[in-house]
Design a protein around this nucleic acid. Sequence first.
RNA 1: GACCCCAUCGUCUAGCCCGGUUCAGGACAAGAGCUUUUCAAGCUCUCGGCACGGGUUCAAAUCCCGUUGGGGUCGCCA
Length: 442
Amino acid sequence: MIRVRFAPSPTGNLHIGGARTALFNWLYARAKDGKFILRIEDTDQHRSRKEYLDEILQSLSWLGFNWDEIYFQIQRLDIYRAYAQRLLKDGRAYLAASQQTEEGSSQPLQEAIVFRVHPQRVRINDLIHGQIEFDTSVIKDQVLIKSDGTPTYNFACVVDDATMQITHVIRGDDHISNTPKQILLYKALGFRIPEFAHLPLILSKSGGRLSKRTGATAISQFRQMGFLPEALVNYLLLLGWSPGENREIIDIKEAARLFDITNANKTAATFDMDKINWINNQYIKGYSIEKLVDLLMPMLRQRFPRTQSYYSDRQKLQGLVKLYQGRINTLGDLLEWADFFFTDEINVDPAAAQRYLSQDLSSEFSLFLERIEKLEHFEVATIEKAFRELIVELNISSRQLIHPIRVALTGKTVGPGLFDVIFYLGKEVTRIRLSRWIKKGS
RNA sequence: GACCCCAUCGUCUAGCCCGGUUCAGGACAAGAGCUUUUCAAGCUCUCGGCACGGGUUCAAAUCCCGUUGGGGUCGCCA
């Protein structure tokens, strides 16, 4: 039975890198009909926070990575201490005076338990990288239990992976240099050594580690921006693995069928916002309008709390969302690009105003408004008909009038078809906004 | 600095393990065109890559060595 684990520490949000590690573990478990175990590495009591734990759990659930078992290291301190005592008794470890003193008190802490590292060659057989050899003479003796009684990362990790019967340790490349230290511990404790698979790191555009400074990193941020979980998972999947046959859009079920950890890439990948935007766009196109409206509703209410009419008229909202479904990359784009439907505070882009509204169009706007007002059935088709008739009479091209009207109504030079926009805006709003550009007396 | 990992278009990748079927395929981005009611959608096209140097071989993106470049780790953090 395959058993894998994801072991986040609640000292920060679940970020892109962690999510990718979680994904590959989860996928491997599903592909091999194994178990996916979640282990919270919360031994650092100063930095661990409940908010982070909640955030991590929520993000994992949102992405769809359900776990079969969950453990908290803070509840297992006795286990680590017992194993450390054993190494002490066997002479594999020794006590060392604390190098720290408790703040504000001269009370010394208890002694730390330190593992003796003997020089030897350690070979790991990585499922992704192949054989990697280390000379442990460059590794210092390792602290097992700190002066405050809690275990160090490498020790807790080994004890847990062994006692939780983890068969495959799938984690980031940055842990490669921890692996020889851990193997020494496995051997000293008489544990069976699991398989290792070290995934390449995800780099930021500038080449270094992904960090807050280089853009969005937390999964929760992506959710807020209006990315869909399926899209995020699909993108993460492509970062370091390929289903082959030039396929890019692949759902998680299909991926689980094809996935194997040994096919994972060994080269670090750069996170690309353009591509994830494109993938999200693909998934938005595939979503039903119903689902999109469900997701959008709370976002819109929060952003435009004063616009009540739309939220009660679901039919109208659906029509409106449909206008944007094909063009937005994120749900957040809709809030931005379609803002003029939900607020009267439209900002007309100065360059656009200069280009399309510098010329006096009072009479054209007035005439167009007159026709609109007279319409018996206010529909997209009738609006267009009225417009077409008008430009024939005025002997101008449609674009000469369409662009100025769009800018006056929406503040933007791009958007859905103008007649759709007018229809969803309604007669009243159209009149008010066009009137602003009609000089008195015309 | 020491140790370790990595190296195909700007980016993600297919091909590499099992050398010839590849003047290296796809996607994103970029550029051009079409659409003409705009584009931030759609369609068509274009640009662009095996890091470098040595081997091995009839033949190397593919195997070996080195160089260079990038990344990671060196905590009583995880």
